[in-house]
């Protein structure tokens, strides 16, 4: 049987050589990259990614990119989409590691069959030797997001613009979300350097529940002087609760100071009107661009990224709002001019 196998291999090599030479002789190789995503068309954040992918296609006309997602978000659904994508034999896949247990099998299968995979938005948080062997991770870092936000607050406090953090409330909208816990851990360690403490408060995501829980905490812990919000949409709720308790929540050198992760019209208008000190952005646009750069150059030159590529956080404050306004308008339909959430 061995001779038969070797003949087959020989034929295959000859075939590849033939197609390769013709390709070189005519035009650059065509590639098809697919982003399998948990962010569906019902989530405006999808636009960050699809906008970047259009940009990528303009720059590399020999590449077609596809964005695959479903509106009904579930891990099973994502696995199904990933399986379908692998079966279509693309030249590269970008996928978020929403569940390492569920995705490990399909991703390994893709890699074994020669499809390079880049993780985006959510990494496999295990140490590099144990994690799924994707080429690289492109996205934000939850811990760093919390840490940098804490450091930013300390800097501004040292400049005398806001009070020094004493007690930070990390308003977790979901108790089971590992990423949110990492953000809280980040700010906790940052503010610990100036002797401040941090409470991981589970607030719930429903607005009334959020307000009730936050008020319960703030009124019995008046030493709290910073609130880190997990999305910009909870920032106005935090601001209102603190305001009702007379804690002076605007950006000034006294009372409460509000921080947020994520930007959109609510975050940008909050910054502009002085309700919000800082809102970080995780470099979402780049997460729809960089994975394809690496997939492209992997094919062209055999390059492989040797470490994760961290796209955020980018600290957004009054000094760089105008950079983010057009992006916010493109993604969410409005920018810092829409301040209805803060009234």
């Amino acid at each position: 049987m061995k001779w038969l196998a070797s003949i087959k291999t020989g034929l295959a090599i000859a075939g590849i050589a033939l197609t390769a030479t013709t390709a070189v002789a005519q035009e650059p190789e065509e590639y098809r990259f697919v982003m399998v995503s948990h962010i569906g068309s019902n989530d405006p954040n999808m636009k960050w990614l699809t906008m970047a992918m259009e940009e990528f296609e303009k720059k590399y006309p020999n590449v077609t990119t596809e964005y695959v997602s479903s509106n009904q978000y579930s891990v099973q659904e994502l696995v199904r989409l990933l399986d379908q994508t692998i079966a279509s034999r693309p030249d590269g896949i970008a996928v978020p590691i929403v569940s390492r247990d569920a995705l490990e099998g399909p991703i390994r299968r893709a890699i074994d069959s020669g499809i390079p995979v880049v993780a985006f938005n959510i990494p496999d948080s295990r140490p590099e030797r144990e994690r799924i062997p994707y080429m690289t991770y492109v996205g934000g870092d939850e811990y760093l997001t919390g840490y940098k936000t804490g450091q930013y607050a300390i800097e501004k406090a040292e400049a005398g613009e806001v009070p020094m953090p004493e007690h930070v409330v990390c308003a977790m909208i979901a108790a089971e979300h590992e990423g949110l816990r990492e953000r809280c851990r980040g700010i906790e360690e940052a503010v610990a350097e100036v002797g401040a403490t941090t409470e991981y408060l589970f607030t719930g995501a429903d607005p009334a529940t959020f307000r009730s829980n936050l008020q319960a905490y703030l009124s019995s812990h008046p030493e709290s002087n910073y609130i880190l919000n997990m999305g910009d949409f909870t920032a106005p709720w935090s601001w209102q609760v603190a305001n009702e308790l007379g804690m002076s929540p605007d950006v000034d050198d006294e009372g409460m100071t509000i921080l947020a992760v994520g930007i959109g019209p609510i975050g940008l208008s909050g910054l502009k009107e002085g309700h919000l000190l800082v809102a970080s952005e995780q470099g979402f646009w780049l997460q729809g661009y960089i994975p394809f750069e690496w997939l492209y150059w992997y094919h062209e030159l055999g390059y492989e990224a040797q470490s994760d590529i961290i796209t955020g956080p980018i600290m957004v404050d009054t000094t760089n709002i105008e950079k983010f306004d057009p992006l916010s308008k493109a993604v969410f339909g409005s920018g810092s001019e829409d301040s209805s959430a803060w009234q």
Partner: peptide
């Protein structure tokens, strides 16, 4: 009473 809301309105209630 408080018209600032989000798609999470009523979550787990």
């Amino acid at each position: 009473d408080k018209p600032q809301t989000h798609v999470t309105l009523g979550d787990l209630m």
